[in-house]
């Protein structure tokens, strides 16, 4: 078993007025390389927070996050940003695309930010695999929900990251589109040997994962 993400004793509390919400409560977690891991749990159980911290979008109150043998919490903001755009791909539930850029431009965005030259063939391959090859010049406003999410997925893949973190990417889609998108997602990730960590509500989706982790009140229970 090869670890790609290891979380040690992570703690994150929120203060809303007088209440203290324990979003992440002394959590330990290990994600295996190359596998599709689903994180399930009720709303408010701290899944998103965990994912954000895993991806370096948020800083915990205490604890360690090791990705690929590196403690990302030691990195300064700019270095963290660089790390993110090279090693981690993100897919959110919505507001993923920039409306003024077309599909192609949205997809190559992470490369552009990293200053890497775009390899047209590679990107076309991804687009083809994900079924958007004919839409490369389309504007986001003309795409359906499923197409938009697939664009977002393509973008997450374009930078050839090691890990892809997805936060309920199919939450806004109908069940059929959901299936379609998940299928593509899973294919791509396994073809490229990447690791996928996804938060989902849906049992059906969770089925497609290699491993399922249940988070309850900020703590982890593993179920496979």
């Amino acid at each position: 078993m090869h670890k790609i993400v290891e979380i040690k004793d992570l703690v994150k509390y929120y203060q809303t007025g007088e209440n203290v919400v324990k979003a992440v409560d002394h959590t330990n977690l290990v994600i295996e390389r190359g596998k599709f891991t689903a994180i399930v749990g009720r709303s408010g159980s701290g899944k998103s927070t965990l994912l954000h911290i895993m991806g370096g979008l948020d800083r915990p109150d205490s604890g360690e996050v090791w990705i690929n043998g590196k403690n990302i919490l030691e990195l300064k903001d700019n270095a963290l940003a660089k790390f993110r755009r090279r090693k981690i791909g993100f897919v959110f539930q919505d507001f993923n695309l920039i409306p003024s850029l077309n599909v192609w431009e949205n997809v190559v965005l992470p490369l552009g930010l990293d200053g890497r030259k775009v390899n047209e063939q590679e990107i076309m391959q991804i687009l083809e695999k994900i079924g958007l090859a004919d839409k490369r010049d389309a504007m986001p406003s003309t795409l359906s929900g499923g197409q938009k999410q697939r664009t977002a997925i393509a973008r997450a893949l374009a930078g050839a990251p090691s890990i892809i973190l997805a936060d309920e990417p199919t939450g806004n889609l109908d069940s059929q589109t959901e299936l379609e998108v998940m299928n593509f997602f899973k294919r791509c990730v396994s073809d490229m040997g990447q690791t996928l960590v996804m938060i989902t509500h849906d049992e059906t989706i969770a089925q497609m994962a290699d491993e399922v982790i249940l988070i309850e009140d900020g703590k982890v229970e593993v179920r496979s």
Partner: peptide
């Protein structure tokens, strides 16, 4: 059977 633009269910 449902046909979607890029997939079949």
């Amino acid at each position: 059977m449902h046909q979607l633009p890029n997939s079949l269910i």
